[in-house]
Amino acid sequence: MHRLLLIGAALCLVACPVTGEAQDLRVPASVIAGDDATISTAGSGKATFYLLGPGVSRKSEVNLGEEIRLRGQELRNAGDYLVLVCTETCHSGTFYVIAAKPASFAFLVHPSRVPVGLGDAVSGVAFPFDQFHNLVLAPVTVTFQLTAGDKSLFSKQVRTQNGVAWFRTASGKSAGLLQVVASLDDLSAKRAVQQVASDPCNLRITGQRIPNGILVQTEPVHDCAGNVVPDGTIVTFSATEANGKSTVDAPIKQGIARAQIEASGATVVSVASGVVMGNELRMEAKP
């Protein structure tokens, strides 16, 4: 009988799977992304270890009672991780990987082109990310600065909430490049917005008879803040005679729009650009 037991035990040493008892499983409460971590187990024998998290799914054999080392490389993604240690039964634990310190920004600024003097016209949104592209959820202070030339137009410090900071402000008074900068410690992201003249203001025309009609032209076209309206902006001239009406669209070139209108009788010429009307010009009939 004793001999049989010994033979049975010897056979089992060769063929029976060695299973252990995982009595206790200790996982860290949280780990910073990219850092190494350890998990401690109690008991003895071999067990199957599973690590499941964002971007990782690992299975390996471990010895119970020994520490399980998790490399920082497999803990790069922020989020919840599940640990399983299985023998005949499985024991589980979870831990959270926190984003590391900010290493870059996603910075969205709108619009890319804006008329001057418009309220709430420029806005920006910043999302800080760590070196592993995890959104940093811990509050950090982002500074937004808007400058036109060497003149500061806006500066505001905003604390992130749920990983986002944003601003909204009016556009400046002068046409030209608007620099928008978001900064956090030694990190910064720059964007540019082109400020352009607003609608024309005090649109005025002059005209003269020429052999085959009337030559009309605007005075230099500016917006109400004095910015030159960009070349290519369309100005519409309308000529009304006793026998009908004709319309000519002309682009502004070097601040002035010109048009030649065929008209021989008494004519009234009016001008408009966008929603803005200019003065009327009354021309006598051709002598």
């Binding site: 969205l108 709108h110 619009p111 806005s123 949104v125 909430q161 749920n162 986002v164 944003w166 909204r168």
Partner: peptide, 14 residues
């Protein structure tokens, strides 16, 4: 929805 950007180009939700 906890944040919807002024220009509507990104939304943050929980």
């Amino acid at each position: 929805a906890v944040f919807y950007a002024p220009e509507g180009d990104v939304m943050e939700l929980q």
